[in-house]
Design a protein around this nucleic acid. Structure first.
Length: 467
RNA sequence: UCCAGCGUAGCUCAGUGGUAGAGCGGUCGGCUGUUAACCGAUUGGUCGUAGGUUCGAAUCCUACCGCUGGAGCCA
C-alpha cells in the first residue's frame, strides 16, 4: 500500500487464531459494518479467510478519522496496528489502529446490508454475494470439499484423469447435449439433402460438450487400474428445479477388477469421508448453516456418518413401496422408474438414512451396464440421500464383448460407431465399475442449502447465463 | 416443457374496488467499549409490462415477462 506499511499482511483467520498479542500487524479486507463510539469507531473487517470478522478500533487521533467515519459497508481498507486482547465481549482479539488506508470506497448504493437477505435476492447479485456470511461460507466449504475429494482418491491409489470436455460421442444416454461448432449459422456448409454438413466443421465431425467422462475413464481404468475424473459436465436439458444446472461438476471414479459390491462400498466410503472432512475442517461454516439454513443439519450429518447405508435391490424397493400403503401420485410397479416421491419415501420415511438401490430392470437403464445372470436386471446402483434424492449413479460395466454389442443394438446404437470402446472388451477385458457423484449435490447435502444455484459461484440454468 | 404460487420503496412485507403504508437500510443530528447498538428527524414508489372492465384499479379480467416451489430428465 504505502511504504509506511512494509509489514507483510496477515489474514484475519490467522489474526483471530493468535495465541498472544502482536504489537505490529497488517490486515486487509472489506468493511462489513461500522459503529461510532465517542472517541473512536468500531469497524467489523472481513477478508473472506474465515467466517468471523476482526473488530478494528479506529481512534479519532487518526489523521484521516473524518474519512473513517464516512466509511460505508463494502469499502476496502488496509489497517496497520496492534492486535490486543479485546475489552469487550464477543471476541478475544481486536486491532487497535495505528494507520488505516482506504483502498477502495463504497457508497450507499452497496446492496448488501448487515441484516439478512433472502437467497433469491442475493442470486441477482451473484458477483457480490460471496461477501455475505452465508455465501462466503458456502464457497469456502466448496473449496474444502473439492480438496477432500482429491485427498480421498489420492490416498487410495487412484489417478486423477482429465477426460475431454469436447466430445464426439452423442449417445451416452445422459441427456441433451450442447453442440460445439465454428460453423457460421448464416453460411453453413450443406449436404446434398440440405442438412448441415458437420463433416466440414472444425473437428470434421459433429461435436458436443461432454455429458460424462465415463467412457474415456473406462479406457484409463483398463490401464492405470484406478482413476477418477473431477471436472465440468454439461447437459442441455430444460430442467427447472432446485437440483439441476446445465453446467455442473461431477466426480467419476472408475475401477478395474471391481464388481458392483466394491463399487457400492466405495461410494458409501466416499460420502462418509467427505462429511467427516467438512465436519472436522469447517466447523464455523457448519454452525452458520445449522443456525440459518437447516436446524437439523448437524444431527443428520452425524447420523449418516455413524451407521451403514441401507442397501436394497430394485425389486425389494418396489415391494416395500407397494406394501407401504402410502398414496403415491405415480404408480409403483416392477419395470417402472422410481419417481422422486418414491425415492423420497424410501430414504426419508422408511429407512431414514441414505439408501443404495441396485439391480434395476435392464429396460430402464443405459447400454453399458452389466447384464445380470437373471437376464432381466443390470448392475445399476443409485445412492439416494434424504432431502436431495439421487447423489450417486453408477454400475458395473458390461465387459463381455458380445453381450455389450447386443445391448447396444437393443438401444438402437451402431456398434461400429464405438469401435474404440469395444476394443476395451477385445483386449484384456476385465470386470470394472464406476459411478458419478454430483459435486454440487454433495455440497448441498453437506451445507443444507436447498437450491443448487446457491452452491455454484455463477450458475447456468435455462435462460440464465449472466455474469 | 408441464402444474401451482408470487411480482408494492434499496431489502423484507402489509394493503383484496375509494387520497400508496410499516419495519429495516440510507442520509442528518444526538448518545455511547460497541458488536443485527440505542434515541430523534428525514429520505424514499410509473404498485413487473401491455391491454381491458369500472365513475374510480395495487386490488377484478386477459396476455406477456420474471421469480419461487413441485413434476419430468438426471448428478
Amino acid at each position: 500500500m504505502t511504504d509506511s506499511v512494509a509489514l507483510s499482511p496477515t489474514s484475519i483467520k490467522n489474526a483471530l487464531q493468535s495465541s498472544a498479542p502482536i504489537s505490529a500487524i497488517l490486515v486487509q479486507g472489506w468493511v462489513r459494518t461500522r459503529r461510532d463510539s465517542k472517541d473512536f469507531s468500531f469497524i467489523e473487517l472481513n477478508d473472506g479467510s474465515c467466517l468471523r470478522n476482526l473488530q478494528v478500533i479506529a481512534g479519532n487521533t487518526l489523521s484521516n478519522y473524518a474519512m473513517v467515519q464516512r466509511l460505508n459497508t463494502g469499502a476496502s481498507v488496509a489497517v496497520r496496528g496492534a492486535l490486543v486482547e479485546s475489552q469487550g465481549k464477543g471476541q478475544n482479539w481486536e486491532l487497535v489502529t495505528e494507520e488505516i488506508t482506504i483502498v477502495g470506497g463504497s457508497d450507499e448504493s452497496y446492496p448488501l446490508q448487515k441484516k439478512g437477505h433472502t437467497a433469491e435476492f442475493l442470486r441477482e447479485i451473484a458477483h457480490l454475494r460471496p461477501r455475505s456470511n452465508l455465501f462466503g461460507s458456502v464457497f469456502r466449504v466448496r473449496s474444502r470439499l473439492a480438496f477432500a475429494i482429491h485427498r480421498f482418491f489420492q490416498d487410495r491409489g487412484f489417478f486423477y484423469l482429465n477426460t475431454p470436455i469436447i466430445t464426439g460421442s452423442d449417445c451416452e444416454g445422459a441427456g441433451e447435449l450442447f453442440r460445439v461448432t465454428t460453423i457460421d449459422p448464416n453460411n453453413a456448409p450443406r449436404k446434398a439433402n440440405g442438412e448441415i454438413d458437420y463433416g466440414r466443421d472444425f473437428f470434421a465431425r459433429a461435436t458436443y460438450l461432454t455429458v460424462s467422462g465415463q467412457l474415456e475413464a473406462e479406457a484409463f481404468a483398463s490401464a492405470l487400474s484406478k482413476v477418477y475424473t473431477f471436472g465440468p459436465t454439461f447437459r442441455a436439458e430444460n430442467s427447472n428445479t432446485s437440483r439441476h444446472a446445465n453446467e455442473f461438476w461431477m466426480i467419476e471414479p472408475e475401477m478395474a477388477f471391481t464388481d458392483l459390491g466394491g463399487n457400492m462400498d466405495l461410494a458409501e466410503e466416499l460420502v462418509k469421508y467427505l462429511i467427516h472432512q467438512i465436519r472436522d475442517n469447517s466447523p464455523d461454516e457448519l454452525a452458520l448453516f445449522a443456525k440459518f439454513v437447516d436446524g437439523e443439519l448437524l444431527a443428520r450429518l452425524d447420523f449418516v456418518v455413524d451407521r451403514p447405508f441401507q442397501r436394497t435391490s430394485y425389486a425389494e424397493a418396489v415391494e416395500l413401496l407397494v406394501k407401504s400403503g402410502e398414496k403415491f401420485e405415480f404408480p409403483v410397479g416392477y419395470g417402472l422408474n422410481l419417481q422422486s416421491e418414491h425415492e423420497r419415501w424410501l430414504t426419508e420415511k422408511h429407512f431414514k438414512c441414505p439408501v443404495t438401490v441396485f439391480n434395476y430392470p435392464k429396460e430402464i437403464k443405459p447400454f453399458y451396464m452389466r447384464l445380470n445372470d437373471d437376464d432381466r436386471t443390470v448392475t445399476a446402483m443409485d445412492l439416494l440421500v434424504p432431502g436431495i434424492g439421487e447423489i450417486v449413479g453408477g454400475s458395473q460395466r458390461e465387459e463381455r464383448l458380445e453381450v455389450l454389442e447386443k445391448s447396444m443394438r437393443r438401444h438402437k446404437m451402431n456398434p461400429t460407431d464405438y469401435k474404440w470402446y469395444l476394443d476395451l472388451r477385445r483386449y484384456g477385458s476385465v470386470p470394472h465399475s464406476g459411478f458419478g457423484l454430483g459435486f454440487e449435490r454433495m455440497l448441498m447435502f453437506v451445507t443444507g442449502i436447498s437450491n443448487i444455484r446457491d452452491v455454484i459461484p455463477f450458475a447456468r440454468t435455462p435462460g440464465n447465463a449472466e455474469f
